[in-house]
Write a protein that binds this DNA or RNA. Structure first.
Length: 425
RNA sequence: GGAAGAGUGGCAGAGCUGGUUGAAUGCACCGGUCUUGAAAACCGGCGUACGUUUGCGCGUACCGGGGGUUCGAAUCCCUCCUCUUCCGCCA
């Protein structure tokens, strides 16, 4: 959520940058409405506060009169309060209405794209930030990962459908072991890069889902447990970022670095087409997330650092990858700048998104009320960033497809200490 | 799931027979005096949000969340949440 004071101070600039998201004049006028609602809000509060002050003052007088035994005089003053309360009620309802409308309007405005965000409407317009220069794997008679899963009995979609439904794959045997190896490898890499490991709850309440921006408008993407009013998490970002919700940190506590492994649950309502095949798009997958809370002056350096981290993982896994800078039209609602990582799956001959690293600047922290205090005691909203490091399902798809040999699927060397075997066969 | 008790400022802990109590006191923290330096001692400061003001400041709200009673509530009532203890159940 944007801050009204920033909208006021930068309205022309914000409008200009929001056009990158494809916003036209009709949508942009909401910024003017926000300022006007904020004016209403202030006016109502100023009037109401004055009336409340009067009530407080007269109440004090009544108290004094009662003490002095002047009951009748006290009774007389009560009528003043009754009258003032009536006046106050009107301003109070105006105030509440302005606040409600203001919040509703603010919730509709996405984050302001960073200057480096390319123009464009669809994923076609994403900028290739770093391309893969070497030759892509080109295998004779290569099998897609879902066939390899069946061939080696390590990944079973039909079984998942039987137990739960479509989009809930079952790993077994060496497939399970590879999965566990990847999780451990990713967590080890993150913790040695200074991230504190977190095991969060997998169900979150409404306040938490609101804090990172999943609510109010993405409830359709989350599984919801009605009886307990809880949501199954779509990413570890949600519970882990909320660790610091409402905090006022000391400046020297920054940056805060968290990592966490969790399964992720996504309804993926409305998805269709060939890209949902196999592990390409599933309702439950495992992911290791990295999260940082950083000083606004350093958050873009931090973004680079996180990009390097993710890049390092892909290099160690020997996977061909490329990095995209998302264009305005493809940029997530809460993000100011996002870099997507894609790995090449050699049998499908497709690029699969395996990580998304974003700087939210103060968009999340404003909702989270996450601030830090500088040496003079002034408070500022912190910047939040996160990235997948990495999302497992598609990584496994790529490893299966790219590493298939006559002897089976070759386990990347870096994972072999974790798996205890070199081939899946 | 049942029963009882409790939720106050960074922490501890008063207030809870309603009336300058945003809240005593102690610790922690920050500044100062003292000291060669430090400690101790002493003095001062020390919550959050919104509004208002050039500024000093002033106003309003907040004592787990929400609602109510009252001229006036941290203090009374209702409700929800959380925690503790005991019982039950259980990985």
């Amino acid at each position: 959520m944007l801050e009204v004071k920033n909208i006021r101070a930068n309205i022309d600039n914000y409008k200009k940058r929001l056009t990158k998201r494809g916003w036209g004049a009709d949508k942009l006028q909401i910024l003017d409405e926000i300022i006007s609602l904020d004016d209403d809000r202030k006016q109502a509060q100023t009037s109401n506060d004055a009336l409340l002050a009067k009530i407080n003052e007269v109440s004090g007088q009544i108290g004094q009169l009662f003490k002095a035994g002047k009951r009748e005089e006290a009774e007389d003053l009560k009528s003043i309060i009754a009258k003032t309360k009536e006046e106050s009620a009107e301003f109070e309802s105006r105030l509440k209405s302005a606040e409600t409308q203001l919040t509703e309007a603010l919730l509709k405005v996405p984050n302001i794209p960073h200057d480096s965000v390319p123009e464009g409407q669809t994923e076609e317009d994403n900028e290739v930030f770093k391309a893969w220069d070497s030759a892509l794997p080109s295998l004779e008679n290569a099998l897609p990962h879902w066939e390899l899963g069946e061939k080696y009995n390590i990944l079973d979609f039909k079984l998942g459908a039987k137990i739960t439904g479509a989009g809930f794959p079952v790993f077994r045997g060496k497939g399970s072991r590879l999965q566990r190896a990847l999780i451990n490898f990713f967590l080890d890499e993150a913790t040695s890069a200074g991230y504190e490991e977190i095991v969060p709850p997998l169900l979150v309440n409404e306040d938490t889902a609101r804090g990172t921006g999943q609510l109010p408008d993405k409830e359709g993407q989350m599984y919801y447990v009605e009886k307990d009013d809880l949501y199954l998490l779509p990413t570890a970002e949600v519970p882990v970022t909320n660790i610091v919700r409402g905090d006022i940190l000391a400046e020297d506590q920054l940056p805060i670095k968290f990592t966490g492994y969790t399964p992720c649950f996504r309804r993926e309502a409305g998805s269709y087409g060939s890209d949902v095949k196999g592990l390409n798009r599933v309702h439950q997958f495992d992911k290791v997330e990295i999260i940082q809370v950083q000083h606004p002056d350093k958050s873009y350096e931090t973004l680079d650092e996180m990009v390097k981290h993710v890049e390092g993982l892909l290099q160690k896994l020997e996977l061909p990858y490329r990095i995209l800078r998302l264009c305005g039209g493809d940029l997530g609602f809460t993000s100011a700048l996002t870099l997507d990582f894609e790995v090449y799956a050699g049998a499908q001959k497709k690029w699969l998104e395996v990580s998304s690293v974003s700087n939210f600047e103060t968009f999340q922290s404003n909702r989270l009320k996450l601030r830090f205090k500088d040496q003079s005691g002034k408070k500022f909203l912190a910047h939040t960033l996160n990235g997948s490091a990495l999302a497992l399902a598609r990584i496994i798809a790529a490893i299966f497809e790219n590493n298939q040999t006559e002897n089976g699927i070759r386990v990347p060397e870096v994972l072999q200490p974790y798996t205890g075997f070199e081939f899946i066969n």
